[in-house]
Amino acid sequence: MTTEVVRLTDVRKTYGSRRNSVTALDGVTIGFPRASFTAVMGPSGSGKSTFLHCAAGLDRPTSGSVQLEDEELATLSEVALTKLRRDRVGFVFQAFNLLPAFSVQDNVTLPLRLAGKRASRESVDRVLAQVGLSDRRKHLPGELSGGQQQRVAIARALITRPAVMFADEPTGALDTRTAREVLNLLRASVDQVGQTIVMVTHDPVAASHADRVVFLADGRLVGELLRPSAEAVAERMTHLGAWADEQHAGVR
Rank of each mutant, 00 (worst) to 15 (best):
R19H: 14
V79Q: 15
H53N: 09
V28Q: 04
I30Q: 13
V124Q: 08
S145M: 12
H139Q: 02
Q130Y: 06
K138Y: 10
R60D: 04
E71I: 06
E69C: 14
V92F: 03
P141N: 01
G90P: 04
T9F: 04
E71N: 08
S65H: 11
G64W: 05
S46F: 05
Q105G: 10
V124T: 12
A80H: 13
S21A: 15
G45T: 11
V127M: 10
T82M: 12
D70L: 08
R19S: 01
V22T: 15
A35S: 15
D125E: 13
A115V: 04
S46M: 05
A24M: 14
V92G: 05
L76D: 13
G42S: 08
G142N: 12
V92T: 11
P43A: 13
L99Y: 10
H53L: 09
V124R: 10
R118S: 11
S123Y: 03
R121M: 05
E71T: 14
Q130L: 15
V104E: 01
A55C: 02
R60Y: 06
A35V: 08
F91M: 12
R85G: 02
V89A: 10
R12W: 00
S77F: 13
R12M: 00
D26W: 11
V89E: 01
L128T: 06
L144Q: 07
L84Y: 13
A129K: 10
P111I: 01
N97L: 12
R86W: 09
L112K: 04
P141W: 01
L133V: 07
A74S: 15
Y15I: 00
R136A: 14
G31D: 14
K138H: 13
K117E: 12
E72K: 12
L114A: 09
V22I: 14
L25H: 08
V22M: 05
G64T: 05
P141V: 04
S49N: 04
V22Y: 00
P33L: 11
A95L: 07
G90S: 07
A56C: 07
L114D: 07
A115G: 07
Y15M: 00
L81P: 13
L81H: 08
T9E: 03
E71M: 13
L52V: 07
V40M: 03
V28R: 07
S103M: 01
G47K: 05
D26S: 15
R118L: 10
A35T: 11
G45W: 08
L52Y: 05
L140T: 04
R19K: 06
N97T: 03
A95R: 13
R34H: 15
R19M: 03
L112T: 06
V92A: 05
A95P: 03
D125F: 04
C54K: 02
N97E: 02
F102N: 01
R126V: 05
D70A: 14
K117T: 02
A119T: 14
S134T: 15
R121H: 13
V127T: 09
R34W: 08
P100M: 10
L68F: 11
T82H: 11
S49C: 08
R18P: 07
L140F: 14
D26F: 12
T9N: 06
T82K: 09
R137F: 06
S63L: 07
P33T: 11
E78T: 10
H53F: 09
V28T: 15
D10F: 01
P61R: 02
S145D: 06
F91L: 01
K138M: 12
L25G: 11
D70G: 09
R60C: 02
L133N: 10
T9D: 05
